[in-house]
Design a protein around this nucleic acid. Sequence first.
DNA 1: CGTATGCTCAAACGATCGTTTGAACTGCCC
DNA 2: GGGCAGTTCAAACGATCGTTTGAGCATACG
Lengths: 204, 204
Amino acid sequence: MNSSGSTKERILTAAEVLFAQRGFDGASLRQLTAAAGVNLAAVNYHFGSKEKLVEQVFRRRLDALNARRLSALAALADADDTTLENVLAAYIRPALDLSNDDSGSLFMRVLARAFAEHDDTLRQFLSENYGHVMRQFTAEFARLLPQLSKPELYWRIDLVTGALTHAMSGFGMIQRKSDVSELAHREQTEQHLIRFAVAGLSHP
Amino acid sequence: MNSSGSTKERILTAAEVLFAQRGFDGASLRQLTAAAGVNLAAVNYHFGSKEKLVEQVFRRRLDALNARRLSALAALADADDTTLENVLAAYIRPALDLSNDDSGSLFMRVLARAFAEHDDTLRQFLSENYGHVMRQFTAEFARLLPQLSKPELYWRIDLVTGALTHAMSGFGMIQRKSDVSELAHREQTEQHLIRFAVAGLSHP
DNA sequence: CGTATGCTCAAACGATCGTTTGAACTGCCC
DNA sequence: GGGCAGTTCAAACGATCGTTTGAGCATACG
């Protein structure tokens, strides 16, 4: 049982863990509130419903994640340094940083689950609130890869997104070896993802 | 309500549709048996439990899918024609063919859901029954890409798997245009996936 | 001190879940 | 026709779900 922070924060943190482990439907409010060390009724009191709790779990992480992505992208434009590698890094690095945060590490899995569940309500929420981020990065890719037709570019971005979502949510078999530091592993991971994405986006 | 085939077949087909739409937990036996036009108790009578029904849904499709993948790979070896493109086609084409089958088209989504759900029971079942297929293809990739270290190769296969799973389960935004035939669209898709995978696997 | 406000609590609500039961129905062999 | 194995059926079981309720507790303000 978690016992630090406010009731709301404890619920959000416990929800993130349990949603990642068992899914949105699979994690019950009784398990969740027990893990958070709060009363069952606290969820409906503070969030209104389970569905609104799910939204808040996304908001807490995605607001920070996408703000960092956009500011990293803006920093590249300011420095006149918008190479394909750098734009990809602006997209990938904030997500990998999140994986370092002990409680945030599970969030990418929650996100991947949301994609897999095809829940229209959730997809619409994500599209409405964070679609502009993807649109901004897509525009940058289009500028950097002018030789690609629109459909061709969308195809490649779609495939790269699939690969990154898969990898960052920890589906794969790649695990950190004990003789590699956490920092070194993250930088290795970042380099793998970026080089793969560059190849996938810009191949002839 | 479906009304063709035996009770078992009707249940399996309805289950595939509903599992793809609502997930394994989200689809109830009552919805499922109503859609199949059979009695609620028929699932437990014919399959023993809901969990065993899930296994059978996978078995029915994966047995055929992986047999076709392996025979396509064997055909390449016989013809002495094991290029990277051809090996990837042997893996991808049977899955895309499945997407054409009206009732099979949802199965790749079911498979992607299974990945996302991180269910240990299901993952173990898939690994035990179909792990040898992935191992055989991995060995072929290792032979065709001798310049890559083992970890490097695994990284790339992992990322390619993510991209293909994502794309083939229809997560992406790519839809067939009305002025493109179904056959032409599938061949375009296949070419996109193969060229992307070749780039991701063999980039310098 | 009194009371208003924000929060927590145990308990209960109705709904829905997977599963089980025992009777009814089917087609086939003796 | 009588009996039998295979299958279908409506009904019920206990468990668990999200949500609601109303009493109780805390803290701050007049």
